[in-house]
Each structure stands twice: as structure tokens, then as C-alpha cells.
């Protein structure tokens, strides 16, 4: 009886502890998922190329960014949410945001010298990499945001 209750208690502790422990672990490194079939492979390839050239230094190859400095691109509202806001981050840069309760102090410089097509490609790529899955961004959408900014 004594032992049984103790074991039951331990099991309960474990059940409570397990999700907490899981949260503390760094996000599992998801292999770059194949994007939705509607997104053409050449567009993703172009996006990947832009990412490597302009984004990787700060956001790193796994898209998880740098603690306290450069925000993660995986599973954040900034990336998966409003496309206009996301496009403006590239056009205008960004600094000093809190994401998922953590402060990020790195400076994101404006990338306005990229073409509309390059921005559309890289945004589509990050919205469909690192475990993300979201709709594509078109060059026309980028052009509209740039015109209205």
C-alpha cells in the first residue's frame, strides 16, 4: 500500500514533469520539410539560395536564430502570420522585439536592395522550412507592400 501509493505519486510526478522537461529542451531539429505541393521547387531553391547569402549568418542554418540576439524563424507568428508585416521586416529591418517571451537584441538591417522576386522567394522559403508550413508570398505582394510602405 505504502509502496503502491509512492509509486503512483512518482508516476504522477513524472507525468507532470515530462511536458515541462520537453519544453526546456531546444526545439527538436526538424529536417527541412518538403513544402506544400503547391509551391514549386525552383521557387524554394531560389529562396534557399537567397537565405544562404543574406540570412544564414544571423538566423543560422537551422533557422533557430541566436539566443538573446537574432530571433528564430521556426514556428513564430512573425513568420507564419501576416505577410505584410513580414515583408516590412525585410524592407525596413527590425530591432528589439520580444518573441515567445524572450528578448532579442540583434539588429536586423533592412534588405530593401533585394528584388521583389528575391524577397518573395526567401519569404516563401522560410515560411516552408524549419518545420514551418504556410502560404507562398508572391513578387506582386512584395511590390504592393514596397509601394505602400
Amino acid at each position: 500500500m505504502f509502496v503502491k501509493n509512492f509509486l503512483a505519486g512518482l508516476a504522477l510526478c513524472a507525468a507532470i514533469a515530462a511536458p515541462v522537461a520537453a519544453q526546456k529542451k531546444p526545439a527538436a531539429k526538424a529536417p527541412a520539410k518538403k513544402a506544400a505541393s503547391t509551391i514549386p521547387a525552383p521557387l524554394l531553391a531560389q529562396g534557399s539560395s537567397v537565405y544562404k547569402q543574406y540570412c544564414l549568418t544571423c538566423h543560422l542554418a537551422d533557422g533557430l536564430g541566436v539566443d538573446g540576439m537574432n530571433p528564430p524563424l521556426a514556428k513564430t507568428d512573425y513568420v507564419l502570420g501576416d505577410k505584410t508585416r513580414l515583408t516590412k521586416v525585410l524592407l525596413n529591418g527590425l530591432q528589439g522585439v520580444d518573441i515567445n517571451g524572450e528578448q532579442y537584441r540583434g539588429v536586423m538591417p533592412a534588405q530593401a536592395t533585394l528584388t521583389d522576386a528575391q524577397i518573395a522567394a526567401v519569404l516563401t522559403y522560410v515560411r516552408n522550412s524549419f518545420g514551418n508550413k504556410a502560404s507562398a508570398v508572391s513578387a506582386a505582394e512584395v511590390k504592393a507592400v514596397r509601394a505602400g510602405k
Binding site: N5, F6, A8, G9, L10, L12, C13
Partner: peptide, 11 residues
């Protein structure tokens, strides 16, 4: 549920 948990904690 609470009782065995408390017991386990105490232990």
C-alpha cells in the same frame, strides 16, 4: 490523486 502525491513528495 493528491494524497499519494503528497506522500511521495514527503518521501
Amino acid at each position: 490523486l493528491t494524497r499519494p502525491l503528497l506522500l511521495a513528495t514527503a518521501l
